[in-house]
Design a protein around this nucleic acid. Structure first.
Lengths: 208, 208
DNA sequence: CGTAAATAACTGACCGGTCAGTTATTAGGA
DNA sequence: TCCTAATAACTGACCGGTCAGTTATTTACG
């Protein structure tokens, strides 16, 4: 039983937090907060359970870090897109839909969203972070864009916040479907096709 | 220490299961499946924990009973409505929206739905039941109605299932919002107003 | 070497499920 | 009608397993 060449572990203080958060995001997205075991997270991150506590104080703390990491880049991107786009309203919506459609299909943000929805009641602070940092600003920005379009006569009268929610809802439900019902044998939706059709009818219905 | 007038408990074999399921529905809707303690359910049902096991074998079993009880009546109603309604497509959609809006606001079905979404990965059978008995048939029926309307030239071409999902999505997201973000201080949506506006734009967008 | 990073064995609280005993209720005999 | 025996609904203390968090110890590395 000689430990021979390979050392038992490496000291990599700088890289650990990121690796742990990445592993935790996967496990949380799979199991939800309560059912995620710290042993699982540690194993997937290539660390012992005790090692987690060198970088985070509690399980909640890890959850917070995951949400922050999952949130920040995407909020940034969508915000920038809405702010930068100059064209007429339909073009803006189509560009946004294309971007969001890509994000939805390439990241595990769907699983994280499902996790937030599912655990909101037991961990209200998580719902608060998710809302204050992601959903709230996004909806406000979108509502602002819609209100501006209304002022220019490009969109019919009505509550801009509600219009914003109407736009986003089918995407969210599509993701929920994929995460919830498709795994148990329900027929899947073709997300890009669904989005395309939705944008068409949405723009048709919202025009004056 | 005389036990005097009030007896310690009553024997009410007939009423217990219903009371337990009702209590369990509340606790599950509040906490989700995993976080719901049998002690809580028992206390709310006015029974001891052991008493639960006189009527149900496992926690899963109670969950199943709750889902069945929450599902059956509503599926029945919505199905009947779709089958019975003769009028033109827009009228049918408006009637359906009004009905569903009422159900959403008077029952705890929203909480149960959130629970199913949140726990689907850890308890796939629940997602299966929810889909096979409620969501699936509902979506199929709706898609059938839409396809029929397309055949009559009342609805523009496109995937009927996707159109059905587009119709339902804002309602679902509205409920999720109410259950998830409103409790942590997010501005609430006026559900009836949201539904009304959505039906208008939906019908406008889906017309040929 | 010294010390900080990392491990692995450990603790204690919690919770689903069990079961021996308790109590309300019913049935039957005087 | 009253009393007693039999029954089954119900209770609550308990057990075993799980898991978040702690700590004593080992190991890598400047």
């Amino acid at each position: 039983m000689l430990p021979a060449g390979e050392p038992k572990f490496r000291r990599r203080k700088a890289d650990r937090p990121g690796e742990i958060v990445e592993a935790a995001m996967q496990v949380f997205a799979e199991k939800g907060f309560a059912a995620a075991r710290l042993d699982d997270i540690a194993a997937r991150a290539g660390v012992s359970k005790g090692g987690l506590y060198l970088y985070f104080d509690t399980k909640d703390d890890i959850f917070r870090a995951v949400v922050e990491q999952a949130i920040a880049p995407n909020v940034q991107l969508a915000r920038a897109m809405l702010a930068a786009h100059p064209g007429p309203f339909p073009d803006l919506i189509r560009a946004l839909a294309a971007h969001v459609g890509g994000v939805i299909q390439t990241t595990s943000i769907g699983g994280v969203a499902k996790m937030v929805i599912g655990e909101a009641r037991n961990f209200p602070e998580l719902a608060r972070i998710w809302h204050d940092r992601l959903v709230g600003p996004m909806l406000d920005t979108l509502a602002g864009v819609i209100a501006a379009a209304q002022a220019r006569g490009e969109v019919r009268p009505g509550d801009p916040r509600a219009y914003a929610l109407q736009l986003v809802a089918p995407l969210l439900v599509g993701v929920i479907w994929r995460e919830t019902f498709a795994p148990v044998g329900a027929p899947a939706f073709d997300l890009p096709a669904l989005i395309a059709q939705h944008v068409d009818t949405y723009l048709g219905g919202i025009a004056p």
